[in-house]
Design a binder for these strands. Structure first.
Length: 419
RNA sequence: GUGGGAGUAGCUCAGCCCGGUUAGAGCGCCUGGUUGUGGCCCAGGAGGCCGGGGGUUCAAAUCCCCUCUCUCACCCCA
């Protein structure tokens, strides 16, 4: 049995890679206008970074991390998400210290989670993430959501609607969790097995349960937003007003909860059609306490991640081709009709490349028929054929494969003609 | 981690239920039809330890068991 790629990993071949190039190029263009710079952090970190930031009890930390001991016995983990490493890096380089300083930064790269693969889910996947530090204003929340909507539109995915919710301040969340636990304690036996677990791990999640019987039991629970402290509610209201002002389409989803413990206040996600059941292409939120939690100065911040594999699915579902996939102008396939022609053909090939055009040559003597067939398949515009008669006069037959027109051209003039 | 579906030619798949000739099709590939002219058409050809291991049988792609992989869904997430 030959060696296979590990489960949940894929090889991205050239046709597929074009999508990733498009998504990354577009991100750079859009994010630049909003003042973002790029950061590249390691793909592994000390395990503690993730367990402390994401939360010990979360699915990600408790069962989905690629964790191993390095040669010195220190526990390291392939990054399951991008925010914590960015925060770590900015603290470490002391870029968050200055009063009032704002930092806008994005990254793109692979993430790793040990899960059962399915449509839109892999063990190694690729995200583009954005992080905005140092701005507590609700306008910051709205700006990030607006920028991401703009990004999706720039990719050709059209107008999208982002689902939003607010978890409130850390204190609000804590109080609400306690309240839900208390209310559901008596009903525990009637809850579905998943909800019994949720009550312990993350009570907010029960509200999103899909089991109708459970939903009936929750009818009397106070809503999260109603239980929130006043400043939290004011922030959420202001975010929605700002989104309205910026013309961003959104939809309030009271059940929306994210899988990281560090989120506070605004959380959001965007789902698209055609992806199967894992249809969120983007998710994020505010994390005002994280920087301090990781040893930095108190810094309000928010961020989001985009799942590139899922965006590819969405693009394909909408029949959006990656940019730069149109055939190039004036590319040439060189055909050598005998061993003695290969040297001249190789020289011709390089002379065409030297003027910036695509030139293909397989360094193989071919029949004219198979040579032209290969040229046709390669979707080039011209074929340059060198046989014995052409070689004798240092020329080739330059054939336009679209029109069928051909003419004899000296080898040293071909590059000039296709330039 | 739990549950469904699927692994047969480079690709997409038929054959499996009801074991038994040389395991098929379409597409792709190669060659020829045209002494040096592609695409379309026609003819021919190459290419498979039927995912792996074990078992039943005179005989297994086909039946049984194990295993690996892919896939979809749940949980959760990008």
């Amino acid at each position: 049995m030959p060696i296979q790629a590990p489960r949940g990993t894929v090889d991205i071949l050239p046709d597929e890679a074009a999508y990733f190039q498009t998504m990354e190029d577009t991100a750079r263009q859009v994010f630049l206008r909003y003042g973002y710079g790029e950061i590249r952090t390691p793909i592994f970190e000390f395990t503690e970074l993730f367990s402390r930031s994401i939360g010990e009890e979360t699915d990600i930390v408790s069962k989905e991390m690629y964790t191993f001991a390095d040669r010195r016995g220190r526990s390291v983990t392939l990054r399951p998400e991008g925010t914590a490493p960015v925060v770590r890096a900015l603290i470490e380089r002391n870029l968050l210290g200055q009063q009032g300083a704002q930092v806008k930064i994005y990254y793109a790269g692979p993430m790793f989670r040990y899960e059962r693969p399915q449509a839109g889910r892999q063990r190694q996947f690729t995200t583009i993430g954005v992080e905005f530090f140092g701005c507590a204003s609700p306008w910051a929340d709205a700006e990030v959501i607006a920028m991401l909507s703009e990004y999706l539109e720039a990719l050709g995915l059209g107008k999208t609607t982002t689902r939003i919710n607010s978890l409130g301040s850390a204190a609000s969340q804590k109080a609400y969790n306690a309240q839900v636990r208390r209310s559901l304690a008596a009903l525990k036996d009637r809850l579905c097995p998943d909800c019994r677990r949720r009550v312990e791990i993350n009570p907010l999640r029960v509200l999103d349960c899909k089991v109708p019987e459970d939903q009936a039991l929750f009818a009397d629970l106070p809503s999260l937003v109603d239980s929130m402290d006043e400043p939290s509610r004011a922030h959420y209201d202001a975010v929605r007003r700002a989104l309205d002002r910026l013309g961003v389409a959104y939809e309030e989803r009271p059940g929306l909860v994210r899988g990281f413990d560090y989120y506070t206040h605004t959380v959001f996600e965007t789902c698209l059609a055609g992806l199967g059941s894992q249809d969120a292409v983007l998710g994020g939120g505010r994390y005002d306490g994280l920087v301090e939690e990781l040893g930095g100065p108190p810094t309000p911040a928010l961020g989001a991640g985009l799942g590139l594999e899922r965006l590819v699915l969405a693009m394909k579902a909408m029949k959006i081709a990656p940019s730069g996939s149109a055939p190039e102008e004036k590319s040439v396939c060189i055909v050598a009709l005998g061993e003695e022609c290969i040297e001249a053909a190789a020289g011709l090939t390089q002379s065409i490349r030297a003027v910036g055009r695509r030139a293909l040559f397989d360094y193989t003597a071919r029949s004219i028929k198979s040579g032209l067939r290969a040229a046709n398949r390669a979707e080039v515009e011209f074929s340059a054929i060198i046989g014995g008669t052409e070689l004798a006069e240092s020329a080739c037959v330059l054939k336009n494969l679209r029109t069928g027109e051909e003419k004899r051209v000296p080898l040293d003039q071909v590059a000039g003609l296709v330039k």
